[in-house]
Nucleic acid binder design. Sequence first.
DNA 1: GAATCGATGGTCT
DNA 2: GACCATCGATTCT
Length: 198
Amino acid sequence: MRLPRGFYARDTLTVARSLLGRRLVRVLDGERIAGRIVETEAYVGEEDEASHASPGPTERNASMYLEAGHGYVYLIYGMYHCFNIVTEREGFPAAVLVRALEPLEGLASMRKRRGSVGARSDTELTSGPGRLCQALAIDRSHDGVDLCAQDSPLFLEPGEPVGAWAVAAGPRVNVRGDRAAVRAPWRFRIEGNPHVSR
DNA sequence: GAATCGATGGTCT
DNA sequence: GACCATCGATTCT
């Protein structure tokens, strides 16, 4: 059972909140590596100055304009990848950045890719956008992947949705600019969960 | 624990 | 040539 296209083709803030508690699954060499989403961030339209879509369509952000339910993966700081889930309608650039997971399946496999840091504790395995991509072996080859396709190596399962009472909202991390819209509380996390990013 | 800094390369002006 | 939707190590209090 995986989340249907209709789940993603909604208002981005709604999707960002609804993604909390869901299970992100990566199939690698026949093995399931999975985690529960505990932190997300929404990026909405070209008017959102913090979004990669703010300069309009470019080669890098092309995936953000795809139909909902696709992946958008980019390289940041020359060494880390970030994984986003495309939302809303085709042609409108919006996505949700998955910022942290609670590791559920394939911990040994995650630990191997995370190296010496991952060996320290489970909370350091997937508590950050760059960390979780390393743990799940997500890279630019997954940019534009269809998360709803039956043969996709990356997809989401319903898991256990989180009630509104357990969701904390705050300003997005590391976005520049001081306009009010940029400071909007579009970062969501499961209140009190130890696996969120710093 | 908090603050700071360097690594490292693709993308856009 | 500047700028990053980051991380881990180092250097402080």
